[in-house]
């Protein structure tokens, strides 16, 4: 049984969960809830929204305000909720296909608006739930059920995308780097504005077994051995960074948040109405 402070964020009656043996999502899920607890949040003030995919089943297990939407649309639903109830601490949990393919447009625009939402992407490089199809983050050359000869497309760097789109906090960790991941999630939750944490997760079932990483332990070792801190990566060449996972914080800045701007706009509109 989890500790009581963690258990208050869980719908314990629903366990065991649906995740496969060796899936990294549970590690990230636990870190998210530890972050809620560490920051003193109550379930009533937490709103978790997801799209479709393995990661998107996480909110169902969380005792809070939770919403499981359509594929790619978590951030769009979350935008409506945050505007309607600005006091809620809104988090979206998405997968790589969910966020970067079908939901890519909502992702860049939520970041551009700088609405106070923490977007977490569990990136396992593959469409797990539908059977191992290649995703926008599948590494070039890796195999998937729709890339039997190796994936010929380029891999999407979601952190670079988030920085370019204007996110005020951007970080990447892996499910191997647990304390770093938890600290990034906490910083993201505390940030006013659009924050983004990409967590590289493991999928031995769909990605690993097609890419010579059949076991959960092998996948963890792969994360450990291939991760490079951002500070070190800055001194490495593109060739040296080939196939590496750069972890660290890519953006951390202050900018006025969207719902605050909207609140000011309303005050101005009401003032204008009164002066007429």
């Amino acid at each position: 049984m989890p500790r009581e402070n963690i258990a208050r964020f869980l719908r314990l009656g629903l366990f065991p969960h649906i995740f496969c043996a060796g899936c990294g999502h549970g590690i990230a899920f636990h870190a998210l809830i530890r972050a809620f607890d560490a920051l003193g949040y109550n379930p009533e003030e937490v709103m978790v929204v997801s799209g479709i995919g393995c990661s998107s089943r996480i909110p169902g297990y969380i005792n809070a305000n939770t919403l499981h939407t359509t594929h790619g649309r978590a951030l769009a639903f979350a935008t409506g909720i945050k505007l309607a109830k600005p006091h809620l601490r809104v988090v979206t949990v998405m997968g790589d296909g969910d966020c970067a393919a079908i939901g890519g447009n909502h992702f860049i625009h939520a970041a551009r608006r700088n609405i106070d939402i923490t977007a977490i992407v569990l990136n396992n490089y593959i469409y797990g739930m539908t059977g191992g199809q290649a995703s926008p983050t599948t590494p070039h050359g890796a195999r998937g059920s729709t890339a039997p000869y190796g994936f010929i497309e380029r891999q999407f760097d979601l952190c670079n995308l988030a920085v370019a789109a204007g996110a005020v906090y951007v970080a990447r960790a892996t499910v191997f780097h647990i304390s770093q991941m938890e600290s990034f999630i906490k910083k993201a939750l505390q940030k006013r504005g659009f924050s983004f944490v990409e967590i590289i997760s493991t999928c031995p079932t769909q990605f690993g077994r097609r890419n010579r990483l059949r076991g959960a332990v092998e996948m963890m070792e792969w994360l450990k051995n291939n991760s490079v801190p951002l500070s070190k990566a800055k001194e490495m060449s593109d060739e040296e960074l080939e196939g590496k996972i750069v972890i660290g914080e890519f953006a951390d800045k202050e900018m006025i948040e969207y719902t605050e701007l909207y609140h000011s706009l309303c005050k101005a509109a009401i003032g204008e109405g009164m002066s007429k």
């Binding site: 769009a76 935008t79 909720i81 809620l88």
Partner: peptide, 9 residues
């Protein structure tokens, strides 16, 4: 999607 989210809120 945003409208549905706001309605749920």
């Amino acid at each position: 999607a945003a409208a549905i989210g706001a309605s749920l809120a």
